[in-house]
């Protein structure tokens, strides 16, 4: 019986190990989120034309939503810059990019609130048709994810300002960045399926 003492994992630096563990967990969580949004997108596709003769996809303001989508996508760039600055140990500059990311996210949310108000005035509510129910549920839950992201970014800025930011803690720029990019990517799918794909 050959005993091959293959040790495939050299004892690594504990700090690197915990980063690896946390990133694995975040990826697993994001995998779960894919199914969460996937179910709501499926629901929306099922009810895409079930408008009960009320307002449907024709009331979307594509130029406006394109602009707010652009704002959200740009926030991924600032998030990368924040992560880069924190990686270099430059927390002061990192904070600026974090605040920028949070502001871009807030702008997107403001755009969504404006848009929802317009749609409600046009007669599209969660009660008007299955189309309305599934539209507001999908975009609303996405908005809630953006809001949670803004909260996480604010917490990072708060911890950093108080000098309590520690990259070995769970509250970590890299993990928040993963989450934030995911929320942006989901929006690309939602924007395509809900707004652009009007057959």
């Amino acid at each position: 019986m050959a005993i091959d003492a293959v040790v495939d994992q050299p004892l690594e630096d504990p700090s690197a190990a915990i980063h690896r563990t946390r990133k694995t967990a975040m990826w697993a969580f994001l995998g779960s989120e894919v199914f969460f949004f996937g179910s709501m997108i499926s629901t929306f596709l099922l009810y895409r034309n079930t408008t009960l003769d009320g307002p449907g996809a024709e009331i979307f303001n594509i130029p406006f939503t394109s602009a707010s989508s652009f704002v959200l996508l740009m926030s991924s760039l600032t998030m990368v810059l924040a992560d880069h600055a924190f990686g270099n140990g430059d927390q002061r500059q990192g904070r600026i990019w974090l605040v920028g990311t949070a502001l871009l996210g807030t702008t997107f949310l403001a755009g969504q609130i404006f848009e929802f108000t317009e749609f409600v005035h046009a007669g599209l509510t969660i009660r008007s048709s299955p189309f309305g129910s599934s539209f507001y549920m999908l975009t609303g839950f996405h908005g809630a994810h953006v809001a949670v992201g803004v909260l996480l970014l604010s917490m990072l800025v708060f911890f950093s300002l108080r000098g309590r930011y520690d990259p070995d803690q769970g509250m970590n720029v890299e993990l928040v960045a993963l989450y934030w990019h995911f929320v942006d990517i989901v929006w690309i799918v939602i924007f395509t399926v809900v707004y652009l794909l009007q057959i």
């Binding site: 697993a28 995998g31 779960s32 989120e33 199914f35 969460f36 996937g38 179910s39 709501m40 629901t43």
Partner: peptide, 9 residues
């Protein structure tokens, strides 16, 4: 991980 979000919706 992959089934709970579906019933969650």
């Amino acid at each position: 991980l992959l089934s709970l979000p579906v019933i969650g919706v």
